[in-house]
Design a protein around this nucleic acid. Structure first.
Lengths: 235, 235
DNA sequence: TCTGATTCAAGAGCAGTGCTCTCGTTTGCC
DNA sequence: GGCAAACGAGAGCACTGCTCTTGAATCAGA
């Protein structure tokens, strides 16, 4: 947007980037709660007070990291999904989505925890995070849209009435007008389950049962595909 | 166990309880990360250093709170499940389990976050937590055991091979010898999904979609019951 | 080109944290 | 009754997020 910019602005942008990088590095080692502004400043060889010119508070730095992390996750999953050929193979796309999400989480556990773990106390996600936060879910919805009319939900399909019916209809209207509410409901549920599986594995709730969880994860993802009515590839 | 005990021991136990109570109160207001030993000491009118006679570190206090919370959740869910009549109605027991877990989470959000949110950095759950942590899952397994032979898993049932098959067999051997691995797998998956749904709702990931989530949650729980092959009550 | 306003980095300092060590005091057991 | 163990309080260390002030560097307009 600003092709011509003074050296000052350029330096400012670069330093902002360097601060985030150092913070991300520290995040990966120590976790979010131990991320210390002073330590970041120390790593960059500057006074801690100088950091406040770039991020007005620790929470703002965290917010920036959260947005970056959501986008990194979104990028990786999107790339994996788009690499599937043929693109009409929605079941393969679902597999790609699920395994890419898990892979990212396992490579970036602290960032994953930052996104999907306990929200930092008193910290309420600013509105600018919800768009990047929805990316993976939207990829899932897109995938469902591409199956409509090509396959049926396996029985039994429970009817949805009342409050959730309205919510799902409203959501569908915005995001996927062609997807019937029962399918959208299963999509949301699958998303929650995906997140539950990854979190259990990452946060050690599976220790002693399905650990390592590679095979178990793959199995559940397969059964979820059945439940979503994703057609088997006709190979 | 110690019916006769000196005044000192009695005082020690009482103070330990009071410390945990004050900490729990603070936890409910501020969240785990802001739980401050000094503040707890202040509330009890004692020096912060005196607390260290009862809990050698902050993490030990947290561990005590975690165990209590797991047991509180376990108690509530167990009570709800046991109140179901007839006890043979496994579907109703599953509903009771799911809704009781969600209800507890919504009444004790910070404690729930302590149990199932991001683990505190560098904090690895001591072994004495795993028994109370397994209680809800065990109730679920118990419930599955009571359906074996009375109902079939709805198709399609994916075969399980290799690594996860061995893990599930080993787990079944310990905890539920009569439950076939495919059902146990669905049980584990259902548990993860339950946790995912509750966490999404509590941590604000459903804002703007299924929020409030009462109806949606009930619907998904119903579909999970179908997937687990829980028979409908013959009323 | 000089000047005045703005931006910047650094330092000191505040209030808070977990935790340790020391010091008298109290308590309970032999 | 004496003694060791348990106890509470206080001072202190190293750390945190954050604010305020001070002096230097940079930029834009006359």
């Amino acid at each position: 947007m600003a092709a011509i910019q003074g050296a000052r602005e350029r330096a400012r942008e670069e330093l902002t980037r360097e601060i985030k990088e150092a913070a991300r590095r520290q995040l990966g080692v120590e976790g979010a709660q131990r991320l210390s502004l002073r330590a970041v400043a120390r790593e960059l060889g500057m006074a801690s007070s100088a950091l406040y010119r770039y991020f007005p508070s620790r929470d703002d730095l965290l917010t920036a990291l959260i947005i970056d992390a959501y986008n990194a996750l979104g990028d990786q999953v999107q790339r994996a999904v788009e690499d599937v050929v043929p693109a009409t193979d929605t079941r393969a796309r679902w597999y790609a989505l699920a395994h890419a999400a898990r892979a990212w989480a396992k490579t970036h556990p602290h960032e994953y925890a930052l996104l999907y773990g306990t929200p930092v106390p008193g910290y309420s996600a600013p509105t600018e995070t919800i768009a990047p936060a929805s990316r993976v879910a939207l990829l899932l919805v897109q995938l469902l849209r591409d199956t409509v009319g090509r396959f049926e939900l396996p029985a039994p399909v429970r009817p949805i009435r009342g409050e959730p019916a309205q919510q799902l209809a409203a959501l569908a209207a915005v995001v996927a007008p062609t997807v019937p509410p029962p399918l959208l409901a299963r999509g949301l549920a699958a998303w929650a389950q995906l997140y539950g599986l990854i979190s259990f594995e990452l946060f050690g709730q599976f220790v002693g049962t399905a650990d390592p969880a590679d095979g178990f994860f793959a199995h559940v993802v397969e059964e979820m595909a059945d439940l979503l009515g994703l057609p088997e590839a006709t190979s």
